[in-house]
Design a protein around this nucleic acid. Structure first.
Length: 637
DNA sequence: CTTATAATGAATGTAAAG
DNA sequence: CTTTACATTCATTATAAG
């Protein structure tokens, strides 16, 4: 069993606490004025995997860490989690009876669900009790994966009503379902004794209608105690809609009070305005996806930006990930990376294939220049030989995103036989065309013969992504792994365009820290820009990839030194200080953290930013923050 | 053991139509 | 404005083959 380690780094008013416990990752960042609590489940993808029902002290997941002094790095080691096998039956029963359920109901629930999983027991009880008793099914946040974010936005809204102790962060991780049912039952019993305040009456009415109590409380809090029940319902619906739209809600008032008291005529308008506002305030993808501009197009209106003080370089940093993530992911990433707005760019403006990515960086955005020679921008330019076989009814001039797996030979064979059946005709039937085109787009197939399509060769992928030919070849890497490494890489021309501003700033070369280096997209980009690489510290898990970068490094006659590491999670303050004192600091920190839990093509474990691999983003932030701290303090002294 | 193959949808956003 | 249709997506895994 892993110990979990929390690391606290003071840095310009920002304190970050990371904890990792078994399969669960918790992150807490203490900002100057706000407390963000983010809980996460790595493996399951279902929040119910966490033992939310832990009322007793033995299942404490987190140690509270508060520090008003800018101390050195602290390490806090928590207690082992009590194994669920220790939970005796009577303790289990007592736990639920203590929540206000009848012992009979609890016994039946345990009978139905076994005694292993308290969560399923609780779910069963909640379902059963709502069927038996008058309160209808609870709406919204119980199973809502965004509920934690929701709590995060309104950390204080419940504090006046409950019995939670405010100095214990782990209480924030409690199951909202437990909380709701406790609260609801309390209100019911108070109602029987006739001692409800007007406020509590409204809450109970809403709860009995099936609305989550915490939603009702927030609505009442936000729209004032005079608000009618009808308007409160309105508010809850809008808030819920907002949550569905995005997990992010603005901190400031969601809605001016006077609008909530408006006539029914304005309600539709009100809902629309609300929805519009929420959409506007969450991160949206630009169309066209050109960020702050691409070489082949007129620059967009906005060509200037101002960064917050704590975000400014040096060191400069450059972070990358897929643009099309599950909702809310980029909001979170942006919040951690100093609230810098992501720059979304589709590499189809730099290449013959699409690659929609988001980049967060603190680089200047003026006077960028592209790599020379400009790469082919269409399929026809990139693959001139395919022109001979390209059917007139295939309108593509750009390929879709290059991924990690290629089409099966069986599929291309099926396409060939399907087309040969209509050999005599001028064009195959429209239905056939549609079917073929769908597969061609899905698998990025190109025409290589009469009626014959094929996936791209590895060296063709290298070219499209801006790498030298055979960059990934040799060194004992398999063809399958070449596709995988390439599919996970940067598009070099795109990244180089963004990094080009460094050339004039560092005429004598740079020191770079490269996290999740892969096959060295950033290194290749800088080299092709003519920016000298003095020292490169590269952290990459895959040995095959490290070998590729090492091989490239030697073949390109680099005069600097390449230092590589295996594991970002083992890159701690000691190691960072050691390296920085040796090479004198970093000018650039680059990294694209794992996307596999974010990417749309993942059918199995698209768990979001808290996924097993994608949560390594937090290590990017941790290390970046670490570097900033060390270099900042060195400067100050 | 390594490598290649083939099968495995959902989430999200945008454009179009009603 | 709402509904519908359509397009896209840095992947995982069991299994066979070498």
């Amino acid at each position: 069993m892993n110990d979990y380690v929390a690391e606290l780094r003071p840095c310009k008013g920002l304190r970050a606490l990371f904890t990792k416990f078994g399969d669960h990752v918790y992150f807490i960042a203490f900002y100057v004025s706000n407390v963000y609590v983010q809980d996460a489940n790595v493996s399951g993808g279902d929040i119910s995997d966490v033992d939310w029902t832990s009322d007793d002290e033995s299942e404490t997941h987190l140690e509270a860490v508060t520090s008003s002094q800018p101390t050195r790095t602290e390490t806090i080691v928590g207690n082992e989690e009590a194994s669920s096998s220790n939970a005796t039956l009577s303790k289990l029963i007592g736990q639920f009876v203590g929540m206000g359920f009848s012992e009979k109901l609890v016994l039946k629930a345990i009978d139905e669900n076994g005694e292993e999983d308290p969560d399923s027991i609780l779910n069963w009880i909640l379902t059963f009790s709502t069927l038996e008793e008058s309160p209808p099914q609870q709406l919204s946040t119980n199973s809502d994966p965004c509920s934690s974010d929701y709590n995060e936005i309104f950390p204080n809204d419940l504090s006046d009503m409950d019995s939670w102790s405010e100095d214990e962060p782990e209480d924030c991780l409690k199951d909202t379902g437990t909380y709701k049912s406790e609260k609801h039952k309390m209100l019911l019993s108070l109602a029987e004794s006739g001692s409800l305040s007007e406020k509590e009456e409204k809450l109970l009415a809403l709860a009995n209608m099936g609305y989550a109590l915490e939603d009702a409380e927030i609505a009442l809090e936000r729209s004032g105690p005079e608000t009618s029940v009808d308007d409160l319902i309105e508010f809850i619906c809008v808030a819920q809609m907002a949550r569905e739209q995005d997990c992010y809600l603005p901190e400031d008032d969601l809605k001016p009070k006077h609008l909530l008291n408006g006539s029914s005529k304005s309600k539709k308008r009100k809902l629309f305005e609300m929805k519009k506002k929420v959409i506007e305030e969450s991160i949206r993808l630009p169309n066209p996806m050109i960020g702050y501009g691409v070489p082949s197009m007129q620059p967009p209106e906005r060509v200037h930006r101002s960064l917050p003080e704590e975000a400014r370089g040096p060191p400069y940093f450059y972070y990358e990930n897929v643009a099309l993530t599950p909702k809310g992911v980029w909001d979170t990433i942006s919040r951690f990376l100093y609230d810098i707005e992501p720059e979304f760019v589709d590499s189809k403006f730099f290449s013959a294939c699409a690659r929609k990515r988001g980049y967060i960086h603190n680089l200047p955005i003026e006077n960028r220049f592209p790599l020379i020679p400009l790469p082919p921008l269409t399929i026809q330019q990139a693959f001139p030989l395919s022109r001979r076989w390209w059917p007139t009814w295939d309108p593509r001039d750009k390929l879709n995103c290059i991924q990690t797996a290629i089409a099966s030979a069986k599929l291309t064979e099926r396409i060939r036989t399907m087309l040969e059946r209509h050999e005599g005709d001028d064009d195959p039937p429209e239905a056939v065309q549609r079917a073929v085109m769908e597969q061609c787009r899905k698998w990025n197939l190109v025409w290589v013969g009469r009626n014959k399509v094929a996936p791209l060769e590895p060296d063709e992928v290298e070219m499209l992504l801006g790498f030298p030919k055979n960059h990934t070849r040799g060194g004992g890497i398999s063809r399958t792994d070449r596709y995988k490494s390439l599919g996970n890489s940067f598009q070099v021309d795109t990244v180089a365009y963004h990094l080009s501003v460094l050339k004039d700033m560092y005429p004598h070369g740079i020191n770079m820290l490269s996290l999740f280096s892969g096959i060295g997209g950033a290194e290749v980009a800088l080299h092709r820009l003519g920016i000298k690489l003095n020292n490169v510290v590269s952290i990459e898990k895959s040995k095959a990839n490290r070998d590729i970068v090492r091989s490239w490094w030697e073949q390109t006659n680099q005069t600097g030194s390449l230092i590589d590491f295996d594991d970002v999670q083992l890159f701690d303050a000691t190691r960072a200080e050691q390296i920085i004192s040796s090479i004198g600091g970093f000018d650039l920190v680059v990294g694209g953290s794992p996307c596999n839990n974010l990417a749309g093509s993942n059918r199995v474990s698209r768990d979001g930013l808290e996924g097993k691999e994608s949560s390594l983003f937090y290590d990017y932030f941790r290390i970046l923050d670490l570097i900033k701290c060390i270099m900042g303090s060195n400067r100050a002294v």
